[in-house]
Design a protein around this nucleic acid. Sequence first.
DNA 1: GTTGATATTTAGGTTACCCTAATATATAAA
DNA 2: TTTATATATTAGGGTAACCTAAATATCAAC
Lengths: 217, 217
Amino acid sequence: MSPTKEDYLKILFELGGRTEQVPNKEIANRLSISPPTVTEMMNSLVKAGWVVYTPYKGSKLTQEGTDYAKKLIRKHRLWEVFLVKHLGFNINEVHPEAELLEHSTSAELADRLEAYLEFPEYCPHGGAISTDLMEEQEDMTVHLTEAVLGVPVRISRIVDEDRLLRYFENHDLKIGDRVTVTGRDSGLDLLTLNHGTTDKEIQISQTIAQYLFVEHI
Amino acid sequence: MSPTKEDYLKILFELGGRTEQVPNKEIANRLSISPPTVTEMMNSLVKAGWVVYTPYKGSKLTQEGTDYAKKLIRKHRLWEVFLVKHLGFNINEVHPEAELLEHSTSAELADRLEAYLEFPEYCPHGGAISTDLMEEQEDMTVHLTEAVLGVPVRISRIVDEDRLLRYFENHDLKIGDRVTVTGRDSGLDLLTLNHGTTDKEIQISQTIAQYLFVEHI
DNA sequence: GTTGATATTTAGGTTACCCTAATATATAAA
DNA sequence: TTTATATATTAGGGTAACCTAAATATCAAC
């Protein structure tokens, strides 16, 4: 299994490919590659049994594909805990490091690392580490864009992509914060939030808000 | 820089490519690839400025190539220390793990890891970690095959290739042991040693003894 | 100095992963 | 229901890193 293929499986999981068909374009966007390359890769992943692909519709992970993706994400998050807790990295620096390390981590190494870290439940971005908890969390949390107007929620997880993390940091948003969606303007692609702690108004792009997960309180 | 190219630089350093021309065949053997592939890769490494190549003779590392190789080896050895000291791995299990991790380790990560490990001097196989000490050690130590008959020496370093480590373990040899070469049979490719601690006679293949480094006491 | 053994290179081919340009399909709007 | 737009696929090409088979260079022995 190449790091490249592993990346496809992981992205597929992150885009909901466990339960829904993910269109090629979304994968192409997230990985910054051309759509024909995605088509080609999907055919290869189908042949290897990781993915079910319906031409012109999109791809879903098989059970094997889902399990593989979850293991990768677990490794990624374990490294993030290590980098932050023991090596003193800043939360928004660890993603690219873990992105590399995850592909070089045997099952044995992951298990030993997990024990060494004393079985942490969450990564620094709020993502569940145990592969069982992972699916549960995926199902329970909701995109910020789907939160009901006026109902306060708690930010539980931020998709850990470098540029995104800096965007959220610049808007003073972090895990655990309570926010209330007060307005939605689809034309301008804007979401207006009230920050529970500071009571300030925050405006962020809806497209980007998709990468923020919230839980009801 | 691809992991593949990094492996070539590292092997070149390990085979003495810092000071001498290394023939293609040795590289092909150590990496288990065909000689034509080595020729091809050497041309590409020359173009990138890592290597000076004389056709039909062999390759030498440039200063840049040497520095790059030393940084890789440092990362490799740092991971080995971490795996043994903190994750409880066995010495002969860590090589393949570190072999993967070294290619996924930024300079920043290596520095932080080194500080976390409290600046260890040597890896579990006896290899120096600081890039300065590394060359020094390389120059001072001598292959077991070159030790003078009857003169006791101390095993200082074992090239950490998985199969070799198991071979040395099976012959009850480890770092720090005092041994004396008592006989050499080139026809049978045999080296006879006297083990300083147990006073037992040990016979190992000369070919394999090349991967054992010793220091005079 | 020719010969033979060994090492190296050249020639030609494969697979993985990426691309652009052109074509085809699906979907939403008129 | 046709048409426009967005999305996906096919066709054709490129580079990196491997391979085998055949040709060539080196070097030591005669």
